[in-house]
């Protein structure tokens, strides 16, 4: 059964999970397929590793719990990301209310930065400085590979709104990173 699950579509897997058949193996197959995407989303959205891990874990636990409810699954990764998004936004709200925690996380980030390549760290840092709505749309586009149309559906906003936000996000990032990017683009 385990090996055969790779051949199943998302729709079929969710159906099996809802019916409680081989739920452990089915869940693990879904996890195998999308854990990377969900974790990247959380990691990029929240910037902080610890928060991202918490949200990532909660996402899959909530997903498993919600799979027991009757629903028609049309887009499994989007469903997972929607859960992750809500949890990320909650996490950000909590973070705003905790100055001490925020300071602590900055220190953690500072430790991590030393270990990573410079430009990627700069991108991550620049990303965390973007307003939430711009950061979110940038992550969906660049790290989740969603099309503009998919982003519009995912966030429930118009296409023109998506285009404007993506433009603003990328322009903002480019401005922050320009000294480095202009050097690299000349190579």
């Amino acid at each position: 059964m385990n090996n055969d699950l790779e051949k199943y579509s998302d729709y079929e897997l969710f159906k099996l999970l809802s019916n409680g058949r081989e739920s452990e193996y089915v869940f693990k197959e879904i996890y195998r397929r999308y854990s990377g995407r969900v974790y990247t989303y959380c990691r990029k959205f929240l910037g902080n590793r610890e928060d991202a891990m918490d949200v990532f874990q909660d996402t899959f636990i909530k997903f498993y719990e919600s799979s027991k409810q009757e629903r028609e699954m049309t887009n499994l990764p989007a469903f997972l990301l929607r859960i992750a998004r809500n949890l990320c936004l909650n996490s950000l709200r909590l973070r705003k209310n905790s100055v001490e925690l925020k300071d602590y996380m900055k220190i953690e980030n500072a430790n991590e930065i030393r270990e990573q390549t410079e430009l990627l760290n700069l991108i991550q840092n620049a990303l965390t400085n973007l307003p939430t709505e711009l950061r979110e749309i940038f992550i969906l586009r660049e790290y989740q590979g969603m099309s503009y149309q998919e982003i519009a559906e995912f966030l429930g906003i118009s296409m023109s709104n998506v285009k404007i936000r993506i433009f603003r996000a990328k322009e903002k990032l480019r401005e922050i990173l320009q000294p480095y990017i202009s050097e690299l683009s000349k190579l």
């Binding site: 974790y39 990328k170 320009q178």
Partner: peptide
């Protein structure tokens, strides 16, 4: 401007590979 955005996109693509739970 196009070169800079292209560089940014390429850099992000290398970043994609490093995130696993």
């Amino acid at each position: 401007l196009m070169r800079e955005h292209l560089t940014l996109s390429r850099s992000i693509k290398t970043d994609l590979q490093s995130y696993q739970p």
